[in-house]
Design a binder for these strands. Structure first.
Lengths: 104, 104
DNA sequence: CTTTCATTTCAATGATTCTTGAATTATATA
DNA sequence: TATATAATTCAAGAATCATTGAAATGAAAG
């Protein structure tokens, strides 16, 4: 994961609708959710949802898979972890205060 | 730390110049750096640097202190940790894969 | 009190991003 | 093949963000 990928991920995460989408997909778990169901859950129009899901996918935060005529979206936890690790290790040089915030 | 603060922090971090500034301030450590020195180190004009430092400060990622006629900026590791914890705990429900990426 | 230096603010411009609704694509079913 | 459904793409306009250089502020020194 390089800097421009991380910047793209931060940009994707800096939007309320997309953060709502992320939460929905986290809740949905490994089965994922249909694009239309995400739109309904979040209260967004199909085209708006498609735009936001594309943004999240381009940033690697979600993945998509076609299932007949619908699209299943899933959260990519590894990508989120990679972004966090970049911020902690690369930007903050493993700072202990930051580290502690994420400790279990 | 609430959602809109986290969104503001992500927006502040989704910019190459500001990520460079962050790295500079991390390297500078607790002493911090003068605004002008950050500008020189990053190769940005004073007004541009002031804009970016204000953005980072508004997001809580850096703090500022006046020292006679100069400004000292310091990274706020706690705020960065708070953002990461929000992403891990609130958005990702403490997901183990994400957790592992930040483990020491 | 004036000058100088460091930084911030302001105004203008260009570039991105967000939103909406209509049109299009892809897939399944009658 | 025609029709219906799910999702995406497109075009237009509004809003936000980034950059530049000039002007203003705050603080020290002569």
């Amino acid at each position: 994961m390089n800097e421009s990928q991380v910047i793209e991920a931060f940009a994707a995460l800096s939007n309320q609708t997309r953060l709502q989408v992320l939460r929905q997909l986290v809740e949905a778990g490994p089965d994922g959710m249909l694009a239309g169901d995400v739109a309904t859950a979040v209260g967004a129009s199909p085209s708006r949802m498609s735009f936001h899901l594309s943004t999240l996918q381009a940033a690697g935060i979600v993945t998509s898979e076609r299932q007949s005529r619908q699209m299943i979206y899933r959260v990519n936890f590894q990508a989120i972890g990679d972004v966090m690790r970049f911020l902690l290790q690369d930007c903050c040089k493993g700072n202990a205060t930051v580290q502690r915030c994420c400790a279990p």
